[in-house]
Structure formats: structure tokens, C-alpha cells
Amino acid sequence: MNSTQQWQSVTWFEVDEHQEGQRIDNFLFTRLKGVPKSRIYRLIREGQVRVNKKRIKAETKLAIGDQIRVAPIRFEQKDESAPVSDKVAQSLLSRVVYEDEGLMVVNKPSGIAVHGGSGVAYGLIEGLRAATGKKYLELIHRIDRDTSGLVMISKKRSVLKTLQDLLREHKIRKTYAAIVKGQVSLDDQLIDQPLLRYELANGERRVRVSKDGKESKTQWKVAERFMHATLVYASPLSGRTHQIRVHGLSIGHPLVGDDKYGHETEYRGPNPRRLCLHAMRLDIPGYQTMEAPLPEDMQSLVAQLRAQKKD
């Protein structure tokens, strides 16, 4: 196995809702691949890592919007650090639905994580870096591994900051297609339930409705009702982890194919192949509306549900 010494330029990260509350040392362990933990702790001690321009300690916890600066460092980078085949790389490039000099929007397939780590060899962002040869590609936001659909990726730091600011200000509207259990009675409703993140004994993160949680709102519109399920269009008006999934559960309509929330709720429709959630539309100020049609597996399920409806 060959490895080479690599010089890394100043690196910037911005904390989103998925990393809120995480310790800075744990945050850096997953993002500075090839850098020994001892080196990361030394960087922190020496003030080479700054959060919002201030020195921090290893146990410092992060907040949404924190700007993290890591000074140039030298580290070991192994040759197989990006195990992405040409076939996978080209497949991901074929899923780009919009691109300009600063922004790329990709229709992510279900089953691929947005980034590597936690037992995942590589994700969408690593695949695109390998496919394009671009060193600077950064996720503007994230969607779950099992969720398909539109993901925004910045090609410039200025675009990353601008669009993450718009996300924080709730000026970017994201619309998801979801197939949920049962017949939703209201055609249009606002689900307003605070959400609280917590950890299971094994360290897995979950979310539940709680008065101690953060304000969370999701607009639901019924697109089509079936005998045992409903196709809804959901727009989260706040950006919380698993928001649509937990809000659906809170009104008695968990998502079909969800193995974390509401899987014990009765469902007598066709078996799904995966979590039935798809990021179908993005409305970004200053850009054209971007859309990704319902993927084939969800289209097939809808066709089966329609057929059941007619029986």
C-alpha cells in the first residue's frame, strides 16, 4: 500500500443542523481523513483550529452556523482513499440536473449516503469529486441515505455561504414526495410539532415530538389517496433531522418503508423497496425551479397502489 505526504490548504467547514451539538474533536475526526487523532488534538491545543475566529478546546460543542477554520496541515493520504469506480462516477455525473460555475444540483439515488464515514466507504460527494476531478466540492445540505432526490453542492465557497444562509433564513423551499400509511383526511395541513433529537443506547440518533424540542413546521398537501396509503407533497418550513418522517408519525401517517419511525403501524399495501421519500423540487431565490421526477421504484409502488384502489 503506497502513501504520500500531502499539503492541505486552509480548510473551512460550516456547521449545519446535522452536526449541531457535536464536539469539535469528533467533528474533525470524520472530516480530516488520514490525519491521526493525536495530530488533530495538537492542532486544537496550538490554536490551529478556530471556531468563529476563536480558540477552542477539544470538548467545545458546535452550533448551527459556526465557521470552522483549520490551518494548513500535512498528513498521510493513502492511494485508495477514494475507492470510486469509473462506472459509479459516470453514473453520478449523469444525474446532474443543474450546473453553473458555482452550483451543482444532483438527483441522488436512494441507498447512497451523501458522504463517506461511519462504515460507508464513499458517498455522493466523494463520488463527484472523483468524477469531476475538482478538489472543491462541498455539500450545501444533506438528505438521508435512503431518501432519493435533489442535493445542492457548491463549487465555490461564496456559493456555499450564500445558500446556507438562505437555508437558515428559510428562503429556499424544498418539496418532497412521500408515500405514507393510511388515508390522510385533510387535503392541506400545517404540522406544527417541536422536535427533539436523542440517542439510543447504541449511539444511533433519533428524533421525537417533545415540548422541549425545537420549533418545527411542515406543510403537507395530499396529491393522491389510495386504499391503504396516500401520496403527499411535504415542504419542511424548518430544517430538522428526520422532520417529515417524525411529523408524519405524529399525525398517525408514518412513511411507507420507514424502518425507524412507525414501522409497527399497520400497512396492507404492496411492499416497498425502501423508504418512500423523494426530494422532488427546489425553489432557490435567483435560480430556476429545479425538479426531479418520482424515481422508478416509487412510480412502480404508486401504480400498484392505484391498481389496489380499483379492486
Results as ranks from 00 to 15, higher is better:
115 H>K: 08
126 E>H: 05
147 T>H: 01
116 G>W: 11
138 E>I: 11
100 D>K: 00
104 M>A: 07
140 I>Q: 04
143 I>N: 03
145 R>D: 08
106 V>N: 05
122 Y>M: 14
126 E>N: 06
118 S>A: 15
129 R>V: 07
126 E>K: 04
111 G>S: 10
134 K>T: 10
104 M>Y: 04
117 G>T: 10
107 N>L: 11
106 V>D: 07
127 G>M: 10
132 T>G: 03
144 D>N: 02
113 A>R: 11
125 I>C: 10
128 L>R: 07
121 A>G: 12
125 I>N: 10
113 A>E: 08
104 M>R: 09
122 Y>Q: 12
132 T>D: 02
108 K>R: 05
140 I>V: 14
147 T>S: 08
133 G>Y: 03
137 L>A: 08
130 A>M: 14
103 L>P: 02
109 P>L: 11
137 L>C: 05
114 V>L: 11
138 E>D: 14
128 L>P: 09
145 R>F: 06
116 G>M: 12
131 A>V: 01
133 G>V: 04
113 A>S: 15
141 H>N: 02
126 E>C: 09
142 R>P: 03
128 L>C: 12
138 E>N: 14
110 S>R: 14
125 I>F: 07
137 L>Q: 02
136 Y>F: 15
105 V>Y: 05
142 R>I: 00
99 E>Q: 12
104 M>E: 03
123 G>V: 11
119 G>M: 12
142 R>Y: 02
109 P>D: 08
129 R>G: 07
144 D>H: 05
108 K>Y: 06
116 G>N: 13
138 E>H: 14
126 E>V: 04
110 S>C: 13
114 V>K: 14
140 I>D: 09
125 I>L: 14
122 Y>P: 14
139 L>T: 05
106 V>F: 04
142 R>D: 01
101 E>C: 07
120 V>E: 15
110 S>W: 12
127 G>R: 07
109 P>H: 10
99 E>D: 00
137 L>K: 07
147 T>N: 00
121 A>S: 15
147 T>Y: 03
135 K>I: 13
139 L>K: 03
107 N>R: 09
